[in-house]
Design a protein around this nucleic acid. Sequence first.
RNA 1: GCCCCCUUGGCGGAAUUGGUAGACGCAAGGGACUUAAAAUCCCUCGAUCAAUUGAUCGUGCCAGUUCGAGUCUGGCAGGGGGCACCA
Length: 866
Amino acid sequence: MAIERYNPRASEQKWQKAWDEAKLFETDDNAPGETYYVLEMFPYPSGRIHMGHVRNYAMGDVVARFKRAMGYNVLHPMGWDAFGMPAENAAMQNKVHPKHWTYENIAAMRGQLKTMGLSLDWSREFATCDVDYYHRQQMLFLDFLEAGLIGRKTSKVNWDPVDNTVLANEQVIDGRGWRSGALVEQRELAQWVFKITDYSQELLDALDDLDQWPDKVRTMQRNWIGKSRGIDVQFKLTDPVEGHDEIICYSTRPDTMHGASFIAISPDHPLSIALEGDNAELASFNADCRRLGTSEEALEKAEKLGFNTGIRVQHPAEGRSLPVWVGNFVLMNYGTGAVFGCPAHDQRDLDFARKYDLPVRNAFYLASDGADVASEALVPAKSDVVDYVNHFAGVTTATGEEAINQTIAWFEQNGTGKAKEQFRLRDWGISRQRYWGCPIPVIHCDDCGAVPVPKSDLPIELPEDISFDLPGNPLDRHQAFLQVKCPGCGKDAKRETDTMDTFVDSSWYFARFATPHAEDPTIPAIANKWLPVDQYIGGIEHAILHLLYSRFFSRAMKRTGHLDVDEPFKGLFTQGMVVHETYRDDSGWITPAEVRVEDNDGNRIAIHLESGKPVEIGSIEKMSKSKKNVVDPDDIIASYGADTARWFMLSDSPPERDVIWTEAGVEGAHRFVQRIWRLILGASEGLKQAEPNPAKEGDALAISKAAHKTLQAVGSDLEKLAFNKAVARLYDLINQIAAPLNQIAEGKADVQTAQATRDAVDKLLAMIAPIMPHLAEEIWAQLGNTTMISALPWPVFDPQLVADDEVTLPVQINGKRRGEVVVSKQAEGKAVEELVLSLDFVQNHLQGNAPKKIIVVPNRIVNIVV
RNA sequence: GCCCCCUUGGCGGAAUUGGUAGACGCAAGGGACUUAAAAUCCCUCGAUCAAUUGAUCGUGCCAGUUCGAGUCUGGCAGGGGGCACCA
């Protein structure tokens, strides 16, 4: 009897509908079972889902389905990170309203996601651009403001002087505006900031307890917060100028003060700005510096340039005078905006000194040699012992750490310096001069200042009658939005037209999912039941900003009574990207769909389908529109089905690493889908008649052992999100039960084999169900079951079947494997030694000599040292 | 430039976290079935030499620790992520 091929198109729709109708994945807050909240980072509605989404949501779905089967009450919601620049760009380019563009994209992507068969609770869906959502975000803003968590600060933005508009860092290309091409300037704007720095120490300390986060993310956050201990040192100007009589420099290495040979201040240092008035050359130098834009990367990568102000300061310990330079590499927003340059012990300072012919003085030498610094700065670790020269703090031979402490003490006693703890973390500026974002609920009154909008007047809705014909924020020209009465004094006032950074939207959406329709931002009793998110899954690119802001936000929400957790994400998993080969010809990049790849005597060649001409195969890169190396999930799901796409996304590559999308890989995954179907359906008559019953002895024992061992291992793999390992084990299990399944199909299997195989098949389907839920449901139904497998509990393995009483030990001689020996698991070390020494190949290698040492690692290895 | 991560056969990767390197999959080659093709099934598959049960080398490169290193330490190279207004 020929088995029809599995038809994913029919089955997948059928089961998606069945799950929907049974409301299987709609979460009841009060359902029994321990709560488990699994969340994937919600997508930006760009218009189409991409393979990165497929991978992300496939992972989350496996966790959700697995945990549901383990008896947890699972929350697995989905929404849309829907504010942001692309909608405004679309509005400018295609004359489409950001709102319509966004909601159409959401509708399209929702449809795509639904074909994946994800176990999502769609009843909790929302978009951050829904008035219902940003209304509550405005409520949170007001509460934060009242609680003193929000302040006003000026900060720098990229200003396009032609378009008269603020540019994002990514819109500044080589110092020019992306549209106008004008040289970018920096502007100071008054901005709303969230006072994340109030929590610097706490955000740092709490990282230690996030033991279900990747270490690399915790390290990155630690470095980002950047706590340092150092000193503010006073340098008196030899002649006060423009009302300035000193420069304060922050340093973490005051032990190098003896080597100080210049002072460098930021172009934005108050002194530098003060000097601009009488010094046109300096003004022009500073203006050039400000054209680099505001990104730290651009500043750091730029050639290090300096301007000698001609001003001098006195070395506070040695009395000699030092020149004051303005340096383009000194950041105003870190420390005091001024540093002392010690060329001997800092490579950047050394390069600067060589360039501008400044002296290089060693503050210390390595004990081994007293060589002066030449082209490489001497930068030992703080824990290294070095010889200090003529050190004012009395230090001669000490570690950097000791010398730093003594130097700080010396300066404090001397009254010329003050110990200081410093954080690199800055307050979070949230003001954006854009339309498509959450309006900031504040009104500016000439008399009362910035006045919060009363909660009863919320929401402040974005007006829809706007146009992007002119550059800049359309809200600035919208009179009906702009003109309001001051809530304090009733006089004419102006509404704030800045909107919030989209990171604000994504800093609390996970909390809103607990009560997506509540009047208040949260209902604490319910939110606290679900939070923190047990497993959060998303891209490593969010390792710092999104995650740090969210960590701040949950603390701020706790302080304002909306939540009672500090940390929003208990478990974090950062998945790798989906990458693909690139293809190009003379006319540019070509999509994989337009190309056929062939094997030509071991060389892979690509051919353009339409023209038949060869195409160059380029490097493997992150799927992106610009390189056109994208594969549309719709196409894959239409031709192979969602299960194949899900299976392939989770097989082979470990989830935290990049995965290369290949046609061959997808086809392999699809063959496996068909193989399971064929093997089990071929034996379905026999299987239906067999009671599932694991074998305890005889030939069928191997089947049951394989099934139960796999069940144990897959369970622990899924617990660790090691999907690729689980997949490999499932391949293995199918290989092992293929022969008995064929026997059953041919009617040649005995009862024991049939029963053991039925048990193994039941286990196999349960294990496959989280990954390929439609296929598992379909086969499960074909075996005569009437309950959906998605609603069944995870099976339990038999401990007796997973235990082995013998183990194969490799035997090494001098660390090289020479053979192996089978011993009982309980065998004593002595007995193993004797057994091993009696082996022929061991005797041969020993050649009559007595072994020097025998190392027996129980149940692992034996090593004989000769 | 700074911070973080990655590097194992032709390819994706596995290796019980210091204990048999290459599980599992893909690709390739050989064979079976077939009028033929597809599908399917079986075998081989790190390199070099012995030519079978053996030997040597081999986890980006160079050192080191250890009875034993893919795994730990130091240095180097290449690739990737982030750098505060992309999301």
